[in-house]
């Protein structure tokens, strides 16, 4: 496959990962920080941006590790352990760098990094990319799309929850309860994108 075709496929996969196969709304991965940090748009924005960054970078790293370490040695069944170790180490490392060199970036993005170190959405993206046999460029597109998809979902949720602040919600449903219900409705709405693209 030539480069331009690959880039086109990466684009298609990316758009599909944002809308039709949103990692949060159709796979329900990464729910914990999604519920915990979606109270305000500002925080949701920071966390979403951190997820995009981490997903793209870890997809690259994990693809390389899988292709050049695990496959040649016939150790693909070790991908779970290796991927999670790489993700954790990478996030730690990035947090240290940001913390040291850019207080402003640390303020907007860095503080959220520890929250997503062991996030299942991040690991999920790496695993899907391997299972679906993506090439490097397509994998990067997939990581980017999954990240953006997660970002869109959490920012939308934070917007809805800010609106909900003044509404009377039955006590038993306040907080996580109503958030899960809204997540379900959002997931239904996203089903509407099915058929727009058949990517991946």
């Amino acid at each position: 496959m030539n480069i331009s075709a690959e880039i086109w496929q990466a684009f298609v996969v990316c758009v599909a990962a944002i809308f039709t196969q949103n990692i949060l709304l159709s796979y329900f991965l990464g729910l914990c920080p999604f519920i915990g940090v979606s109270r305000e748009i500002k925080a949701a924005f920071g966390l979403g941006a951190a997820v995009i960054f981490v997903m793209v970078s870890t997809c690259m790293l994990n693809w390389l590790a899988y292709r050049y370490v695990l496959l040649p040695l016939n150790l693909h069944f070790f991908r779970f352990i290796l991927f999670i170790v790489i993700i954790a180490a990478f996030v730690q490392f990035v947090e240290m760098v940001i913390d040291r060199f850019s207080p402003r970036l640390y303020q907007t993005l860095g503080v959220f990094l520890p929250l997503i170190t062991v996030n299942c959405a991040i690991l999920g993206a790496s695993l899907f990319m391997v299972i679906r046999n993506y090439t490097f460029i397509v994998a990067v597109g997939y990581g980017l799309g999954s990240g953006i998809g997660w970002f869109v979902a959490i920012v939308a949720m934070a917007g809805i929850r800010q609106k909900l602040k003044n509404d009377r919600i039955p006590p038993g449903l306040q907080g996580a309860g109503i958030t899960l219900i809204i997540t379900g409705l959002m997931a239904l709405a996203f089903i509407g994108f099915t058929g727009v693209l058949q990517g991946g």
């Binding site: 590790a65 370490v69 150790l75 070790f78 352990i81 790489i86 180490a89 730690q92």
Partner: peptide
């Protein structure tokens, strides 16, 4: 043995880096 070695080595390398 190889599997364990590889995973240990990678983890050790990452830990050292950190």
């Amino acid at each position: 043995l190889v599997a364990v070695l590889i995973v240990s080595l990678t983890s050790a390398a990452l830990a050292t880096l950190l």
